[in-house]
Amino acid sequence: MSDLQQWPCPTCEHDTDFEQPECIDGHTEDGGACPEWACTDCGTALVSGDVHRPAAVTLRHAA
Rank of each mutant, 00 (worst) to 15 (best):
M1P: 09
S2E: 11
S2T: 09
S2V: 05
S2Y: 06
D3T: 13
D3A: 14
L4V: 13
L4Q: 06
L4A: 09
Q6C: 11
W7C: 00
W7Y: 15
C9N: 01
C9Y: 04
C9S: 02
T11L: 12
T11M: 11
C12H: 05
E13V: 13
H14R: 12
D15N: 13
D15C: 09
D17S: 13
D17V: 08
F18L: 06
E19P: 00
Q20F: 00
Q20L: 00
P21W: 00
E22Q: 10
E22F: 02
C23S: 05
I24K: 05
I24D: 03
D25I: 05
D25K: 06
G26P: 11
G26F: 11
H27Y: 14
H27K: 02
H27M: 00
D30M: 11
G31A: 08
G31D: 06
G32F: 13
G32S: 15
G32Q: 12
G32V: 05
A33V: 13
P35E: 06
E36P: 00
W37R: 13
W37D: 01
A38M: 04
C39Q: 03
C39F: 03
T40V: 07
D41E: 15
D41P: 01
C42L: 01
G43L: 03
G43V: 03
T44E: 15
T44I: 06
T44C: 13
L46F: 11
V47E: 11
S48W: 10
D50V: 11
V51P: 02
V51Q: 08
H52P: 04
R53C: 09
R53Y: 11
R53S: 08
R53G: 03
A55H: 07
A56T: 09
V57M: 10
T58S: 11
T58I: 13
L59P: 02
L59R: 10
R60C: 03
H61P: 06
A63H: 05
